[in-house]
């Protein structure tokens, strides 16, 4: 049984101008110990998807799905207190803003220990020992001293390490990392990602990594889902998606990043023309067609899943024509 199963997840946000279809029917599943990377531009709905899994969406956003199941438990019929028992305990989250994600008024130690003690009746000493142990695990030196410090006394990279340690406090089965490195310096970004990958191997957790950094994905992900305008346009193993990208959007994205061996020095990198469409109102056809070089009349109709291989799904009606010319 899959650890996480999502079928046809929809997130609608009512606005003054009409309903914003932030996520329109995405499905994926995740096994224990696996890493799924969800990539896409800002506004593609990837962060909302992660919040929807934790049931932490803003109040006005509406979540619908045919099924959202975590380890066999249906998250749509679970009570609020049942969801609280899972949150932070068996599924934890790392956010993208380490600077503001810790409470400025409480010490690091207080906030770390609380993550454990709110789920388990353990002596304070045990919670403290675990917090110190995990701070050391995430590469924080003088962990004992850090426990008594306040968030404003720590750099962004250190705060994100604290957030990761906090997510690990209860030994979760799933960690959702929502652009964990976006707010950090480039050198720190790599460290944090390696850290997450190492910890995952050590603790055997499943990880959902939300990012727009394809370079990262290529290194750490088992599976990749490419999101565009609230839909998953291509899903597959990281290997398949990178070696053999099929959707025009995925190809466009991959042309935007330099790849050693493929990109020649001095050669211009690609760029995808146009802009992400407005998601308010009724959406029909392929959302990428106004930016796609291969668009045709049929792209305005419904787009079924084209499955070239069982594990590699692409949503593109032009696929057969495209692959014939290639």
């Amino acid at each position: 049984m899959a650890l996480l199963e999502v079928q046809n997840l929809v997130i609608d946000i009512p606005t003054d101008a009409g309903v914003l279809h932030a996520v329109s029917g995405i499905s994926f599943s995740l096994e224990r110990g696996e890493t799924l990377a969800i990539v896409g531009e800002s506004g593609s709905g990837k962060s909302l998807t992660s919040l929807a899994l934790m049931d932490l969406l803003p109040r006005r956003a509406q979540r619908k799905a045919d099924r959202i199941a975590f380890d066999g438990t249906d998250l749509q019929s679970i009570s609020a207190s049942g969801m609280r028992k899972l949150r932070g305990n068996r599924m934890a989250m790392i956010f993208q803003e380490p600077m503001t994600s810790l409470n400025p008024s409480y010490t690091i130690g207080n906030q770390l220990m609380e993550a454990l003690t709110c789920h388990r009746r353990v002596p304070a000493k045990e919670a403290r020992d675990r917090a110190i142990h995990l701070l050391e695990k995430v590469g924080i030196t003088a962990a004992d001293k850090r426990m008594g410090q306040y968030p404003h006394q720590l750099s962004g990279g250190l705060r994100q390490r604290v957030m990761i340690a906090m997510a690990l406090m209860c030994g979760p089965d799933l960690i959702i990392a929502d652009e964990p490195t976006t707010a950090l310096d480039v050198t720190i970004q790599a460290q944090i990602l390696h850290l997450i990958a190492d910890l995952q191997k050590e603790f055997g957790m499943a990880v959902i990594l939300i990012t727009h950094d394809l370079g990262v994905v290529a290194r750490v992900a088992d599976k990749v889902g490419v999101m565009y305008a609230g839909r998953l346009v291509e899903t597959g193993s990281a290997r398949d998606v990178f070696k053999d990208p099929r959707h025009p959007y995925t190809r466009g994205l991959l042309e935007c990043i330099p790849v050693p061996g493929r990109t020649q020095p001095g050669m211009p990198l690609g760029a995808i023309r146009g802009q992400v469409p407005n998601l308010i109102g009724k959406l029909e056809g392929c959302a990428f067609r106004n930016r796609c070089d291969f668009a045709a009349g049929e792209c305005a109709g419904t787009i079924p899943l084209a499955a070239p291989t069982p594990a590699h799904d692409v949503r593109c009606v032009r696929l057969p024509a495209l692959e014939a010319t290639a």
Binding site: M54, L56, S81, R84, K85, L86, R87, G88, N89, A92, M93, F95, E97, T100, S101, L102, N103, P104, E114, A115, C118, H119, M163, M166
Partner: peptide, 16 residues
């Protein structure tokens, strides 16, 4: 604030 979202993500009760 973001840290309130963090607190909720930890599974703390609304009262806490």
């Amino acid at each position: 604030a973001d840290y309130i979202r963090t607190a909720r993500a930890k599974g703390l009760s609304p009262a806490v």
